[in-house]
Design a protein around this nucleic acid. Sequence first.
DNA 1: GATGAATGAGTATTCATTCAT
DNA 2: GATGAATGAATACTCATTCAT
Lengths: 230, 230, 230, 230
Amino acid sequence: MPGQPDKQPEVRRLRRDAERNRQRILAAAREVFTERGLDASLDEIARHAGVGVGTVYRRFADKEELVDALFAERVEEIAAIAERALDDPDPWRALITFLHEWANVMARDVGLRQMLMFASYGGGARFCLARERFAPLSHALVSRAQAAGALRADFAPTDVPLISLMLSAAAEYAQDVRPEIWQRYLTMFIDGIRARDDSTPLPVNAVLPGEMQMIMEQVAHARANANAKT
Amino acid sequence: MPGQPDKQPEVRRLRRDAERNRQRILAAAREVFTERGLDASLDEIARHAGVGVGTVYRRFADKEELVDALFAERVEEIAAIAERALDDPDPWRALITFLHEWANVMARDVGLRQMLMFASYGGGARFCLARERFAPLSHALVSRAQAAGALRADFAPTDVPLISLMLSAAAEYAQDVRPEIWQRYLTMFIDGIRARDDSTPLPVNAVLPGEMQMIMEQVAHARANANAKT
Amino acid sequence: MPGQPDKQPEVRRLRRDAERNRQRILAAAREVFTERGLDASLDEIARHAGVGVGTVYRRFADKEELVDALFAERVEEIAAIAERALDDPDPWRALITFLHEWANVMARDVGLRQMLMFASYGGGARFCLARERFAPLSHALVSRAQAAGALRADFAPTDVPLISLMLSAAAEYAQDVRPEIWQRYLTMFIDGIRARDDSTPLPVNAVLPGEMQMIMEQVAHARANANAKT
Amino acid sequence: MPGQPDKQPEVRRLRRDAERNRQRILAAAREVFTERGLDASLDEIARHAGVGVGTVYRRFADKEELVDALFAERVEEIAAIAERALDDPDPWRALITFLHEWANVMARDVGLRQMLMFASYGGGARFCLARERFAPLSHALVSRAQAAGALRADFAPTDVPLISLMLSAAAEYAQDVRPEIWQRYLTMFIDGIRARDDSTPLPVNAVLPGEMQMIMEQVAHARANANAKT
DNA sequence: GATGAATGAGTATTCATTCAT
DNA sequence: GATGAATGAATACTCATTCAT
């Protein structure tokens, strides 16, 4: 497109800078949130990133948007874990491996746990988004393991993230004394989801993908209410 | 003691008022914390209770003291659940019942989950105190079920509260769509802790009662640090 | 007065109780204010006295009234010191002794210093009242010493309390390291007020007794303003 | 460096605004503290300065830091007074002049007196810091006057600030009626510290520079205790 | 675009004073 | 009369967010 041959590069150069800053901010936020949780202030993150707070707000409309972006990164990382696990020819082992590695990531990260676990941090809504990315992967891990006769038949793909979440809760509590305690409960879980003749039928249906939208709206609504009351 | 038969009641009536307010405050705090979590302000709780903030501070030196008092109540409630469960002649069913009922309580209460789950709220320290109360009860539930050959031998009493905690994490997430989803995971868990010949050995030792003191100290230390950094 | 022969004693008994309480409160207030200054809370004083706060308010309309009552006590004590000093046949020594003993009292009492020294505590107004009591005593101490040719002629009775005040300021500052440092400055002062041929004439007239009323009004006015602004 | 000659000013201009605000805050604080003492709230100072409270806290971590900054200013002003006084070829007059001018500053400023005089405001600690700055100046003033045979030999440099403090106490009391009354007592003092054959020996040693550290520690300790008790 | 200065509503906590018992 | 429970205004301080430079 002749006539504007040098504007593009200039814009690009700026974008490159901006992108660099964006990355710095994300990296700083990850570090700070990982260690101190989501209550850390944006000022601290900006300082950690070596930029001004204003720059953080130029890149992220909101503290929440920053958290969301960070969360999206994590989703990708965990999706990658799932994809790697799917390379395993043994479908049961693939599922186990994935659960294990995911829990391992969460066990070390206060912020990530808070992102996922508390509605007050928008946890529910985020979790839903994540599941859109995970759905096919979970589905693959689960259906393959079921096809191989290793996984109980009433296990659902949506159970995978919830189990991971539960393990991270155990990790949270015991982090100072037994940081690896979640492995104990993962093992119990695995024994509980193995296909068996005498498995207890699950009393409640799994969460459906279609319910995700509802969760998002309810969480948003709840928060609006909370703010209004205050 | 005739002659002063109505002095006692007079003194009591005074205290009755104070006690009434104390109860109102506790009730309000329970409601507010249950719905909105521990970040709710004491002003809101006072308003909810229909008293001034000062009154809250007259009864509870601290926000933390209020939370602690509330927590103590809950501990007693849950201990009562355990004691009722122990009446069941079937030791396995007793354990299941207890886990079920406890999870049920936690599934509805944001504040209680925060009390237990986050170090930033003093969760660790409180959890330890609770366990002092629960220890004999858990021990009874577990050892009986193991003696009956129903529970896997490597299950430990300290696993009971952690499993409950994990279930409450699931409840937290799904509260808006499937408030009862935790029952699904409890069922999986139950299948995982049933005594079987082919149980996978647990890879990490259970938390020891003796480690509780450590947790308490570390949590206290962590908090002191957090305050100092801030 | 027949017809009410037993009411009097009953009232009296109550008054005796009330007086006892009043004394207890004063004693407690003195202790607490002496050690921790006038910022101590009335609750603490009530606790110290073993009575309820309400009782304090029954006897003293105000925190200020309590402080005033306490102050009146002190004024009497110091007046007694002055009277004892006046027994000394040597007029110069009498004056010195009085200054010394007064400063000694003030050096030990945070609350008394605050009562006297800061307008924000109503110090000025109180000081005036005190001077009404002290005026004849100071006058006697001063005029006798002047008559004996020991004290410089331009020294005024109203200088006595101000010098004492100044010494207590020194005591305040050095209380932790040199609690007796005020003796050093009293000595300097004494050398400065001794009658000499080469004394420097005092550049400003002493405060007149008649100015006291003005001070009282101005202080009261200043305080009203301060409260209004807030 | 031509081509970017205006970047420097731009950076400076930013800072100029901040500095302007900082100065506004300091000026407002000085005014408010001068008139109403250190108990004035930061909200009021912010209002007075025409900025938000947050701005005050951006520049001064603490109320104490603001007070300290203000105090540092004053120390410099007073040091300047001392330096000017030292220009006087007559050593005795230099000392007198300094005492006079210093007292004059303090006589007008409630806040400054509180800064210096009360441990509860950190007075002791600040006074020590000030003395580090004043020490050589006081020493010069004193030793010269002693060398000239005008000042009594047992007078110590550390007596200078204490005398000033005492004079300010007199000023405090009489500010509404005789704001200049301190001059009267300074004159008495001067007559008391003049070298004479018949000076009364000072009964207590002067505070030593080495005792300053102790004071600082004790004051800090006392404050920690005070907070703990409360 | 970047910076960091400014804002102000919000939080926990204290304390003089009032009032029901 | 005595008690101590209740009140609520006041204070220092924080932090997400906006905006001038």
